[in-house]
């Protein structure tokens, strides 16, 4: 069981909290405290909107340990509206066509169990087809 590790990641995983570089204003996800663009310290936290587009995707017909019972499932590269790209599962994929460029939105879902059914439940971001366009 890896409780400390997952606990320290909770903010970013549950809610897509990343960072913004105070020097060059680049938005950063995953947070890493150093700006990947200008190399300077970047520790200011930043709440991402959770909106983005599918940059690439694949359908996993078999999953690794912890994910096997959920197969088949989609994993995608998501280009967030704010700029960064992240790797995430697609969820709630129904009849709509999944394709590169489709708009998606972040939801918080169960990722897997830590160890087995006795371990903690790990939650984190996934993306789904946009449910309903809502005025901001």
């Amino acid at each position: 069981m890896e409780n400390p590790r997952h606990w320290r990641l909770k903010k970013q995983r549950y809610a897509l909290v990343g960072e913004i570089c105070p020097h060059c204003a680049v938005k950063i996800f995953p947070p890493r405290d150093v700006c990947p663009e200008c190399g300077l310290e970047a520790k200011t936290s930043y709440q991402f909107s959770g909106k983005g587009k599918i940059y690439s995707y694949t359908k996993m017909t078999d999953g690794p340990a912890g994910f096997r019972q959920n197969a088949p499932y989609f994993v995608a590269l998501i280009q967030l509206n704010e700029g960064p790209m992240i790797t995430a599962q697609l969820t709630d994929v129904g009849d709509e066509e999944i394709k590169i460029g489709s708009p998606v939105e972040m939801v918080t879902r169960k990722l897997r169990e830590d160890g087995d059914q006795h371990g903690a439940i790990l939650y984190g971001y996934k993306f789904r087809p946009v449910l309903q366009e809502v005025s901001a």
């Binding site: 590790r5 990641l9 995983r13 995953p30 940059y55 690439s56 995707y57 694949t58 996993m60 999953g63 690794p64 912890g66 994910f67 959920n70 499932y73 994993v75 995608a76 590269l77 992240i86 790797t87 995430a88 599962q89 590169i100 990722l111 897997r112 790990l122 984190g124 996934k126």
Partner: peptide, 24 residues
């Protein structure tokens, strides 16, 4: 591990993401 494996991605899946983008 924290940002790819945690999402259920595999090494083959990672290559597939690159390949899908290449084909597109």
């Amino acid at each position: 591990y924290e940002y790819e494996t945690a999402q259920g991605l595999t090494a083959d899946g990672q290559s597939a993401l690159i390949a899908a983008r290449y084909l597109k």
